[in-house]
Amino acid sequence: MKEEIIIAGFGGQGVLSMGKILAYSGMMQDKEISWMPSYGPEMRGGTCNVTVVISDTRISSPILNTYDTAIILNQQSMDKFEDKVRPGGLLIFDINGITRFPVRKDIKICKIDAVDVATKIGNNKAYNMVVLGAYLKEKPIVTLENVEKGLKKSLPQRHWDSIPQNQEAIRSGMESVVEL
């Protein structure tokens, strides 16, 4: 198993932390992992992305040009990464940041209204966990049990009381993802 993922959106949407939680979850599942962020001014706003690789075997390049999955949270990232999904791959996007839907026919395309879902469960801060849930529904590469362990590893202890809400957001995301 080898899954190469790009997560891209605006700084502040939780792109890097979503990738981090996915990476930690992969580690709890005894996988090899790499997490390579775009770093610099992006984290203060502007577009931002992270490449996560989860694999059974040694990972060579942490920097890639094509991906098995793209998780897209704004239009700039859609323009940049739609073409970079490998044929047969997966593209998940949040409809709120998007003005032009993807047009590829050779990949699986899923949408989610993550802002709506996060608002409905009363936890806007868990927006990125809703998106993560949508991804894990389509590609259950890590178990929810390991995601919980991953959350514990990546969050400081003072935030552990928010883990149940994060898990709820993941579950809601899983229920709300729609294949186009």
Partner: peptide, 10 residues
């Protein structure tokens, strides 16, 4: 280099 400094691995 910036890649090895910024990336996360086990």
């Amino acid at each position: 280099d910036g890649v090895i400094g910024q990336m996360m691995e086990k």
